[in-house]
């Protein structure tokens, strides 16, 4: 369910879960567009040779997923920041889920703070952070 403005939002509201496309093909398209093309993002064997668990979803792509999730929930939101802490790699071709929940809101300014977590299939947190967004009144 999407929201139009701050009056639609309450403390503790849960954003719809977003399952981003972490496939090798999608990551390859992203790194090509971002000029971040490196084997650690697009080649599992090359990444493992660097001691990684597999090819990585780039951090800026994860942040893009987080922003996309917010806009799916609140298409008119202006995202003020997305602040992330990377706890463990997000691995290409491994499904992950993004959860978000409203943990602060100011009706006067229209601003909300959202807790964001990227988890893997085992429910383990790979990335967490907060975002602040401004919604229309």
């Amino acid at each position: 369910m999407s929201v139009n403005g701050i009056t639609d939002v309450e403390f503790g509201d849960t954003l719809p879960v977003f399952d981003p496309d972490t496939s090798l093909a999608n990551v390859a398209r992203f790194v090509e567009a971002a000029h971040w093309n490196a084997p650690r993002f697009t080649d599992h064997e090359a990444a493992r040779a660097e001691g990684l668990p597999g090819a990585l979803v780039p951090g800026i792509m994860s942040q893009g997923f987080l922003a996309a999730m917010i806009h799916r929930w609140a298409p008119k939101a202006e995202i003020l920041y997305v602040d992330t802490v990377f706890r463990a790699p997000v691995v290409v071709d491994q499904p992950c889920h993004i959860n978000g929940v409203v943990t602060d809101l100011d009706e006067a300014t229209g601003e909300v703070e959202i807790d964001l977590t990227v988890t893997n299939e085992a429910g383990e947190t790979r990335v967490f952070g907060t975002a602040r967004a401004r919604l229309p009144n």
Binding site: F11, G12, D83, V85, T103, D104, E113, D115, F128, G129, T130
Partner: peptide, 17 residues
Amino acid sequence: DDGRAKVPNYCQWIRAR
């Protein structure tokens, strides 16, 4: 340095949930 939670929001969350 890596904490993102404000203490009043922890309290609010505990009670809301």
